[in-house]
Amino acid sequence: MKRFYVFGFLLLMTFDTLSQISFKYAGDSALPVQASIGWLLRVFSQPWVYGAVLGYVGAFFTWMALLKHAPIGPAFAASHLEVVSVMLLSIWLFDEHLTLPRVLGAIAIVAGIVCLGLAEDREHAPEPAEA
């Protein structure tokens, strides 16, 4: 079952990351924003818009499959790992800077997920036998 969780959350993070990166690319290519049919056609002619839709659909179905089996607390926390992956990819893809607040935020996210996972393991661990 742990393999299911690891694979499932990696897949969820991949889909969520694809959505966020695709939205960034689509947004960059949609500038300047205009209230016109031409602008809408320009937006929907970008392949990144469809990458974002694919990411959201994939994330939805992956999340639904995970919720059938995973405990909700750690599952909800782990579903936010894309914040860290998007931050790291944005350094490479968009020349964004890695700042101390971002690093501390990423560490806090990962630490919170680890703490919730450990708490869930302890809660479901078998009780030691009394002597």
Rank of each mutant, 00 (worst) to 15 (best):
L116H: 07
P126C: 04
G51Y: 01
E130L: 05
A125W: 00
A30K: 03
A52G: 15
P71R: 00
A75F: 03
E120M: 02
Y25I: 12
V83L: 12
A129H: 09
A129I: 14
L98E: 09
H124R: 12
R3L: 14
K2S: 15
A77Y: 00
L18N: 07
R122D: 15
E123I: 02
L104W: 02
S29K: 02
Y5G: 12
P47G: 03
D28H: 03
L89W: 08
L67T: 11
S90A: 13
G8D: 13
L104F: 05
Y50R: 01
A59F: 09
T99H: 07
R3M: 12
H97W: 08
V53E: 07
A78E: 08
G8H: 07
P126V: 02
T62S: 09
A129S: 11
P47M: 03
S36F: 04
A111M: 10
M64G: 02
R42F: 03
G73V: 10
R42D: 14
M64W: 05
V103F: 06
F9T: 15
F61W: 13
G8N: 11
D95L: 01
P128W: 02
P128S: 08
W39F: 11
L11E: 14
A70C: 09
R102P: 12
A111P: 04
L93P: 06
G51K: 01
V83R: 02
V114F: 08
A125R: 00
P71F: 00
I91M: 10
R42V: 07
V43C: 06
L31V: 10
L11S: 15
G117A: 09
P101E: 08
H80F: 12
L116P: 09
L12M: 15
G38R: 02
M87C: 09
V84H: 02
L88V: 14
T14Q: 03
M1G: 12
S85C: 09
Q34V: 05
A78C: 13
E130S: 02
V43T: 10
L41F: 02
A59H: 06
A75D: 10
L31Q: 11
G117Q: 06
L10V: 10
T62K: 00
R3S: 15
Q20M: 04
V49R: 01
T17H: 05
F60L: 14
G112R: 00
W92C: 05
S79Y: 13
K2D: 15
P126Q: 02
W63I: 07
L89C: 12
M87N: 06
Y50C: 03
A131Q: 08
F15E: 10
I113C: 10
W39H: 14
A59W: 03
R122E: 14
D16T: 03
H124S: 14
K68A: 12
